[in-house]
Design a protein around this nucleic acid. Structure first.
Length: 757
DNA sequence: GCAATGAGCGTC
DNA sequence: ACGCTCATTGCT
C-alpha cells in the first residue's frame, strides 16, 4: 500500500484527499490537502487511516473526503500510505466530532481520539460479522406507569424523532426499560446507543438487552476491555453487526448504523464528563448527535439535573414522569433526621454508634424480616467548605456567588479584586463593584450597574422561548441553548434584592484573623452574613459518618456486614439480612430490594464546595433509595440531614422535578451554568494573563479571577447562553494564537466544567 | 558586493 | 524532521 517515490502519478478520479492530520497544535485544526497516488486510488477511501508527510514528518491522519481539486495555492504532497482501508471515520461521526470540538473550544483530532479506538490489525483482518437478526418489538407494558411512556415508545417504533426527559420511579428496573427502548429501535432496523456511567451499569444493561434482542444484536463498549476486544466490538458496530450499543461515555461516538434512539442514564453522574480534552459531556454530545441524525433522545435518571430541566423548560424535550398515585405505590417511606430530630436510641450499642431511634428501628425491622439494609456513608477526601453555622447553607461570595473557603497561608487571599474585568468595563464603562473594599462593595451589589446586571444585549424577559422539537437546538452546531434563547441571568440581588443582596454587616465573620475568601474570584469577605438565615457565623464542614457505620455493625452484632466502596465494589448482595455499607455510587443491587436504607452522608454531600452539591446529594440519595422496597412492603429510608433543606425535602417527597426547577432558578439567579455559559481556563499566571488579555469576548462576557489553584492559576469566563458559541470561538481563537506563536505554556480550557472550584 | 552558513519557522 | 526564508558572517 506504500506509494513509491519518484514515479508518483495522481489517481485518475478524485485525486485530492482532504486529511485531518494528527498534530496537537490548535491553529492546525483544519484538513490539509494531499494528492492520492494512482496506486492508492482504491484503498484511500473516505474515513480511512492514512500516513502523510507533514512539515517533514510522517504523521497519522484520517482521510475526510476525496475531491476533484484543491483550493490550496501551493504544491500538494502525496499521501505516503493508507494504513488500512477500513473507513473508521464515518461521515456522521466526522460531522459530530467537528461540532463537539467547536462547542468545547477544542480540536477535531482531540475528539477523534475519543471517538475512534486504537487500531488492532489482527482484529481488523477477521471476517466481518453477519448483520444480527432483527428482534421483535418488546412489550411496552411497563411504560404504562408513565403517562407519556407508551407514546414515546411508539414514536421510537415508528422511527419518528422524539425527545424526552425521563424520571424513573423508585425501584424501577431501569436496565430493562433501557433495553426495551433499544430493542424497539432495533425492531425497526434502527440502531440504539445506551450510555451509562460505569462498567457495572454496562453489565446490567447489556444483560437486559441480550435477554430482549439476542446476543448478536448487542455490544458492550467500556474502557475495561483490552485493546483487541475493544476494537473487535467497536468494529462490529461499524460494520453493521450489532445494532444496540451499551457503553460508558466514549460510546456516544459509536458508529451505529441508522441510529434511532440515544439514551443517557443518570446524566448527573460526573462520569459522563470526559476527563480528556476537550472534555465533552455525554448529554451535550447526544443532544447534538440525536438532532443531526434525526434520532430520538432520552435523558434519564431517578433524579433530574438542572440541565435536563432546561431541556424541558425550553420545550426541547417533553417529560416522562409517573403520576403521583404510581409514585405512592412504588416509593419507600422516607424520613429525614436533622440534628434537632436526633433522638438517640435507647439500645446501648446503638447509643454508642450515635444512631437515632428512627434509624435504628428501621434497620432492626428490616433485618428481622430477613432483608438487607443499605448504609450509605461518605467517601473520604471532600474539600471542606464553609457553611453557615446556624442553618448550614453553603457560604457564597456576595460578588460572584462562588464558594467561600478559608485561604491557605500565602495563597488566594492575596489576589486583588481589581483582577476582575468585564467586557463591559473594557469598553470603557467604570463598573461599581470592582476594586472597592468589602463593605463598600456590599452596598453596591444590589444596585443597578453591578457586574451582574444583565447587559443591554440580554433579552429583557426571563424565561424561555419554546421551539418545535424538529428545530435546531442551537444555530449550526451544538445547542448553545437547547430550544433557543433562554432569558437573562443576573447576580445576587439583581432583581429586587436577592439572597445575599443587601447585607452590610459590620465586624468579622467568624473571629479568625484570615477572612473567608472566594475560591473563584479571590475576594475576601470580611463581613459574611448568611443569605438564608442572616447568621454571621461560619463553620467548616466535617465528616464522621464512616465510623458511625462501623459502629452500627456493632449494634447488630449477629448480622454480617458487607462493604462496597473504592477498594472493592459489589454488584449485587444476597437477599437476606445483612448490613451493606457502601459509598455513594457503589451501592450494590439487592434482588428483592433492601428492607431499609440509612443515608448517613448528608453533611458531607451537602457541604461540598460545589455549586452542584444539593443536586448531587439528591441524585446519590435517590440512587440508593431507589434500591429499597416500596413503603407498603416495609421499605424505609432514613436520611441524616436537615429536613428544611431543599434536596432533603425533594427526597422525602420524591420530587426530583420540583428540585430541578428550584435548582435551575437558582442557577439563573446566581449566574451559573446551565443558565449561563461558563468556561474555566487554567495555566501558569503569566500565560493565563496574556490569554485572558487576548480574549475577544462578546458583550455579555465577563472574567472572574484569576485565583491560585495549586501551582497554577484559574480564571472563569462567562457569557449569556446566547453568546455561548461566541465564547467558544473566542477561546479557540486565543488558543490558535498561542500555538501559532509556539508559546511554551499551555492553557487548559474547559466549557461548563462540573467542578468549578 | 555577494556567496556561504545557520537559525527559525511553517507545516498541503 | 524537511525545505524554505532571512540574518549574519567572511571573503574579494
Amino acid at each position: 500500500m506504500t506509494a513509491r517515490k519518484g514515479e508518483q502519478r495522481p489517481a485518475a478520479t478524485l485525486p485530492v484527499a482532504r486529511v485531518w492530520v494528527d498534530v496537537p497544535l490548535a491553529h492546525l485544526d483544519r484538513p490539509f490537502d494531499y494528492l492520492v497516488p494512482a496506486q492508492l486510488a482504491e484503498t484511500a477511501v473516505p474515513g480511512c487511516r492514512v500516513r502523510v508527510r507533514f512539515a517533514g514528518q510522517q504523521v497519522d491522519g484520517f482521510l475526510a473526503e476525496r475531491v476533484a481539486e484543491s483550493d490550496f495555492g501551493g504544491r500538494l504532497g502525496f499521501l505516503s500510505k493508507v494504513v488500512s482501508p477500513e473507513p473508521v471515520l464515518a461521515p456522521e461521526i466526522a460531522a459530530l466530532a467537528r461540532a463537539v470540538a467547536d462547542r468545547y473550544a477544542g480540536t477535531m483530532i482531540d475528539v477523534l481520539r475519543l471517538a475512534i479506538p486504537p487500531r488492532h490489525a489482527r482484529v481488523e483482518a477477521e471476517p466481518p460479522p453477519e448483520p444480527s437478526p432483527v428482534p421483535g418489538a418488546p412489550d411496552p407494558a411497563a411504560w404504562r406507569r408513565y403517562p407519556r411512556g407508551p407514546a414515546f415508545l411508539e414514536a421510537v417504533r415508528a422511527g419518528r424523532q422524539a425527545h424526552a426527559v425521563w424520571q424513573a420511579l423508585p425501584g424501577e428496573d431501569w436496565p430493562v426499560r433501557l433495553a426495551e427502548l433499544a430493542t424497539t429501535a432495533a425492531a425497526g432496523e434502527r440502531g440504539a446507543v445506551l450510555v451509562v456511567p460505569d462498567y457495572r451499569d454496562v453489565a446490567r444493561v447489556h444483560a437486559a438487552c441480550v435477554a430482549l434482542a439476542g446476543e448478536e444484536a448487542v455490544v458492550a463498549l467500556s474502557a475495561d476491555a483490552g485493546p483487541a476486544k475493544r476494537y473487535r466490538r467497536w468494529l462490529s458496530v461499524l460494520r453493521g453487526g450489532a445494532r444496540i450499543v451499551v457503553g460508558t461515555r466514549a460510546s456516544v461516538f459509536a458508529p451505529v448504523h441508522r441510529p434511532g434512539v440515544f439514551v443517557v442514564w443518570d446524566d448527573g453522574d460526573d462520569l459522563h464528563a470526559d476527563p480528556h480534552a476537550p472534555y465533552p459531556h455525554v448529554r451535550d454530545v447526544l443532544i447534538q448527535r440525536a438532532h443531526a441524525a434525526g434520532a430520538s433522545l432520552v435523558v434519564a435518571g431517578f433524579a433530574r439535573t438542572a440541565e435536563a430541566q432546561l431541556l424541558v423548560d425550553s420545550g426541547w424535550a417533553p417529560e416522562i414522569v409517573a403520576a403521583r398515585a404510581e409514585l405512592r405505590v412504588a416509593s419507600p417511606r422516607i424520613v429525614a433526621l436533622g440534628e434537632t430530630d436526633f433522638q438517640l436510641a435507647r439500645d446501648p450499642a446503638a447509643r454508642a454508634a450515635r444512631i437515632p431511634t428512627v434509624a435504628f428501628e428501621a434497620a432492626r425491622a428490616a433485618l428481622a424480616g430477613g432483608r438487607p439494609v443499605l448504609v450509605q456513608v461518605p467517601r473520604g477526601g471532600y474539600v471542606p467548605a464553609l457553611a453557615c453555622q446556624q442553618c448550614r447553607t453553603p457560604a457564597r461570595c456576595r460578588r460572584c456567588a462562588g464558594p467561600l473557603g478559608l485561604p491557605t497561608a500565602g495563597r488566594a487571599a492575596a489576589r486583588p479584586a481589581g483582577d476582575v474585568r468585564s467586557a463591559a468595563r473594557r469598553a470603557g464603562e467604570a463598573r461599581a463593584a470592582v476594586g472597592r473594599t468589602a463593605p463598600e462593595r456590599a452596598e453596591r451589589i444590589g444596585a443597578p450597574g453591578s457586574l451582574f446586571d444583565a447587559g443591554p444585549d440580554e433579552p429583557a424577559r426571563r424565561g424561555h422561548v419554546g421551539v418545535p422539537a424538529d428545530r435546531a437546538p442551537g444555530a449550526g452546531g451544538l445547542p448553545d441553548a437547547p430550544g433557543g434563547a433562554v432569558g437573562r441571568w443576573e447576580g445576587p440581588g439583581g432583581a429586587g434584592g436577592g439572597r445575599n443582596g443587601t447585607d452590610h454587616a459590620p465586624g468579622g465573620a467568624d473571629g479568625t484573623a484570615r477572612p473567608p475568601t472566594c475560591r473563584w474570584c479571590g475576594v475576601p469577605d470580611t463581613a459574611f452574613r448568611c443569605g438564608a438565615c442572616g447568621s454571621r457565623r461560619l463553620r467548616a464542614i466535617v465528616v464522621g459518618a464512616k465510623r458511625t457505620a462501623e459502629e452500627l455493625g456493632r449494634a447488630f452484632a449477629d448480622v454480617p456486614v458487607l462493604s462496597s466502596g473504592a477498594s472493592e465494589v459489589l454488584a449485587e448482595v444476597p437477599d437476606r439480612a445483612a448490613l451493606v455499607v457502601a459509598t455513594p455510587g457503589a451501592e450494590p443491587v439487592a434482588r428483592g430490594g433492601y428492607g431499609a436504607a440509612l443515608l448517613l452522608d448528608g453533611w458531607a454531600l451537602l457541604g461540598r464546595a460545589d455549586l452542584r452539591a444539593g443536586e448531587e446529594a439528591l441524585r446519590r440519595w435517590m440512587l440508593a433509595a431507589a434500591l429499597v422496597r416500596p413503603g407498603n412492603d416495609g421499605g424505609r429510608v432514613v436520611v441524616a440531614a436537615e429536613s428544611a433543606l431543599a434536596p432533603v425535602q425533594a427526597l422525602v417527597r420524591w420530587d426530583p422535578v420540583w428540585h430541578a426547577r428550584q435548582e435551575l432558578a437558582a442557577r439563573e439567579e446566581l449566574g451559573f451554568p446551565p443558565a449561563v455559559r461558563m468556561a474555566s481556563a487554567d495555566g501558569p499566571a503569566d500565560a493565563l494573563a496574556t490569554f485572558l488579555d487576548e480574549l475577544e469576548l462578546p458583550p455579555s462576557g465577563e472574567i472572574l479571577g484569576p485565583v491560585q489553584v495549586g501551582d497554577a492559576e484559574r480564571a472563569l469566563v462567562r457569557t449569556s447562553r446566547k453568546d455561548g458559541r461566541a465564547l467558544a470561538t473566542a477561546l479557540a481563537t486565543a488558543q490558535h494564537v498561542r500555538t501559532a506563536r509556539k508559546e511554551p505554556d499551555s492553557i487548559r480550557v474547559r466549557l461548563d466544567p462540573l467542578e468549578l472550584i
